[in-house]
């Protein structure tokens, strides 16, 4: 059963990265769009993420529940040593989720809108930044349960070049995913061109951030090159990601919208696969070398069994409903456009 649970955990992290990421990305793109054009970006983004944003952030909650029920030692270690970035991320989620709804449901449109907008845009940036920092910290080997002073135990565990570089990489990946997604949502060819341009820029930024991650890893003496390229799965994942990137641009140039989305999602999947596979089954790499493993640190069998069944039964209900939701709104949008 614990493989089932690990797959669910991985999938919920992946879906949060891809779907939640595109959602964050829409905000980041808007943040980096010059003032006069923001309105257009916002309209496309609201159309795209409106009906499903709430479902998106459930992936995170599911991952958290899987961790605390199935792998409590991992959950409590992260909670203790990554307390500060977790709190910042929570503040980001709170600010963003509420500002989004407030700006769409306020009955009166006036200066308040500007405030909601600003909160929404900045938190769209901060939240994935810290999500990335948390993910980076889990594998950076800087978490040190034997530390005795505040800085080493609670600050340097996450404030290091590697984690921050992963954070920035996550931000740019989200923006890339969002711009690819929004190409197909654009209401007219001018907007579509605009999103294609943004996708190009964010693609370059993402590759740049990726390079920064490797440099930071070198600086922090983290053998990232060996991790990613030192095993077949990692290597294949990276090659597939690169090839699909080329294909993606060919398809975008031909005016396709659906296939590039799938390819962009595929790239994110490959990146996550490459970085998680090398550590598997370790989830947290500790400074002391006592890594927290999804095998050795799982809950007792009875808990794993009920958790696994709850997840399986839950997905039987959820997946068809979710597909139907996506389907209905896609259909609806196309009807409106034609």
């Amino acid at each position: 059963m614990h493989y089932v649970i690990i797959i669910f955990l991985w999938l919920s992290i992946l879906l949060y990265l891809v779907l939640g990421g595109a959602d964050f990305g829409a905000g980041i793109i808007e943040l980096f769009t010059p003032q006069p054009h923001r309105g257009r970006t916002r309209k496309a983004a609201y159309q795209a993420i409106g009906p499903i944003w709430e479902a998106n952030h459930m992936w995170l909650v599911i991952a958290v529940v899987i961790l605390f029920v199935g792998f409590p030692a991992i959950y409590s270690t992260m909670s203790i040593y990554l307390h500060i970035p977790l709190v910042v991320m929570l503040l980001g989620i709170t600010a963003r989720g509420t500002a989004f709804v407030f700006r769409n449901y306020d009955a009166v449109v006036d200066n308040m809108q500007k405030i909601y907008d600003r909160i929404f845009l900045y938190s769209s940036f901060v939240t994935p930044l810290f999500l990335g920092i948390i993910a980076g910290s889990a594998i950076s080997g800087r978490i040190d349960p034997s530390a005795t002073d505040f800085l080493h135990a609670y600050v340097y565990s996450w404030l290091n070049w590697f984690s921050v570089a992963i954070g920035l990489f996550t931000v740019s990946l989200c923006s890339f995913l969002a711009s690819i997604y929004l190409i197909g949502e654009a209401a007219n060819p001018v907007d579509a061109k605009e999103f294609i341009y943004k996708a190009r820029v964010w693609n370059i930024v993402t590759v740049g951030c990726g390079a920064v991650v490797f440099i930071a890893a070198e600086a922090e003496h983290i053998p990232l090159v060996k991790w990613v390229f030192g095993n077949t799965i990692g290597l294949i994942a990276v090659i597939l990601a690169t090839l699909s990137l080329i294909l993606l641009w060919v398809l975008v140039a031909r005016g396709k919208t659906i296939f590039p989305r799938i390819l962009a999602g595929f790239q994110a999947t490959m990146i996550l696969l490459a970085v998680t596979y090398v550590h598997f089954p370790n989830f947290i790499v500790l400074k002391t070398g006592n890594n927290l493993s999804l095998f050795r640190h799982q809950a007792p069998a009875a808990s794993m069994n009920t958790l696994g069944w709850a997840l399986i039964i839950g997905s039987v209900f959820i997946i068809p409903a979710l597909f139907y939701l996506y389907y209905s709104f896609q259909k609806d949008k196309h009807r409106e456009q034609h």
């Binding site: 459930m58 029920v69 809950a299 958790l307 709850a310 839950g314």
Partner: peptide, 9 residues
Amino acid sequence: GMPFSLEGT
């Protein structure tokens, strides 16, 4: 954890 995992659904 059981009710929490069902609650997720």
